[in-house]
Write a protein that binds this DNA or RNA. Structure first.
Lengths: 212, 212
DNA sequence: GCGTAATCTAATCAACT
DNA sequence: AGTTGATTAGCTCATTACGC
DNA sequence: GCGTAATCTAATCAACG
DNA sequence: CGTTGATTAGCCCATTACGC
């Protein structure tokens, strides 16, 4: 899905944010911070933002790109380096648990956002800042709002539920079931009597390993 | 749900269509037509509209109000008066089968309508005519569009599906099931062996009458 | 607990040098 | 043309975790 | 066949005489 | 203030029937 006609691309890509260029000193600080922790929390990013005089969202993007391009893929599940110092237990844990506070939108704000979304799902930077000004929300939040929630979400959800309802039937024991959820119920009801069944249960598929 | 504060009512009821007043002769013709057929088809209404020089939608409303207020409730299912003439079989059947052609909306028109709807679910006559002009559709269609389709519909649909998914569990045989659909499957699988079960199956509930 | 904002990865687009 | 900031998709909605 | 525009009823709002 | 045109809801989406 790479090469489309350039016409629709111009629709999509009009008015993007002007490219930020960091100075030498700014980059120095960023690289230094990255080497210490490629996954800074919100406060860390905020601190950096103040330190180098940039928006926090730009720093967010910088870290994302840096992570994607300078190795360091696969975010460590908990802490990847237990050999390091673990002296101050409170100072070290700035890894995952520190993020921007959830912004909650009033219904009128949601209205405005949804309307803007239906009119143009890919607003340029100017439209976004206009919106941000209008509803009193940082532009970075407006930018991230659209894919997150709103109508498209609802459409998708509906489609999924539809498909889930029309899901292929599964076989368990002597019976046929339509929904994985019900299969689970059935198995949990019978697992005392038929204890040797091995069931792999994921969100969307269930496989019965052994027969009755 | 009758008496709310008058404030929101003014929001809802601002800018309604100016009250049409029919002349004596117009009323005479309308009453005459009503006595012949209280449920005129589209062509009949159109004919009347030309005859008395009024919009077809106004005539529609007039007939609705007349039906509601001058007896004649309970629309006959097929034809309520078989004792009458049945000589010309083609001329008589102008009852239900003659209606305005479906207007189909382009996606851009739908966009405009939906946006207008989310901005203001109850537009006044002026907003409606503005919209109608903008998208090239009769105002009467714009007026009727909003409750018909659009977003609200989708919301309702989702809510229903949600409820269907979270339906109460049912008991059949020794097992517990979550979905009525699955209950149906189960029963159909076992109905040879347990043939005396009586099942009432509707869209939303299934009741097992007899035990195993 | 559910809803959903925040966050993430992978891929691509595009401005600047 | 390479570098790198910005944007987009994420397809049985990506994953996580927090506010209400 | 499904999606949905057209149509309907019952109730209420509200302008005009 | 009654008559009557206009509007709104229709609560497990009001019902009907037509276009695609």
């Amino acid at each position: 899905m790479g090469q489309d006609s350039p016409s629709d691309k111009t629709m999509v890509t009009k008015g993007r944010r002007s490219r930020t260029s960091f100075t030498e000193e700014q980059l120095e600080i960023l690289v230094q911070a990255f080497s210490q922790n490629p996954y800074p929390g919100y406060t860390a990013k905020q601190r950096l933002a103040v330190e180098i005089n940039a928006e926090e969202s730009r720093i967010q993007i910088w870290f994302q790109n840096r992570r994607a391009r300078h190795g360091f893929l696969k975010r460590p599940k908990k802490k990847l380096d237990p050999s390091k110092d673990h002296a101050s237990p409170k100072e070290k844990i700035q890894d995952g648990r520190d993020r921007r506070c959830r912004t909650s939108y009033t219904s009128s704000q949601l209205q405005t956002l949804k309307n803007a979304f239906t009119e143009n799902p890919y607003p340029g930077i100017d439209s976004r800042e206009q919106l941000a000004e209008k509803i009193g929300v940082p532009e970075s939040r407006v930018q991230l709002f659209l894919p997150e929630t709103g109508m498209a979400q609802k459409d998708q959800e509906m489609k999924n539920i539809q498909e889930k309802t029309n899901q292929n039937t599964h076989i368990a024991g002597n019976f046929e079931y339509k929904s994985v959820l019900d299969l689970k119920l059935y198995l949990s009801e019978t697992e005392d009597t038929v204890a040797t069944q091995h069931v792999t249960f994921s969100k969307r598929s269930a496989v019965v390993a052994s027969g009755v």
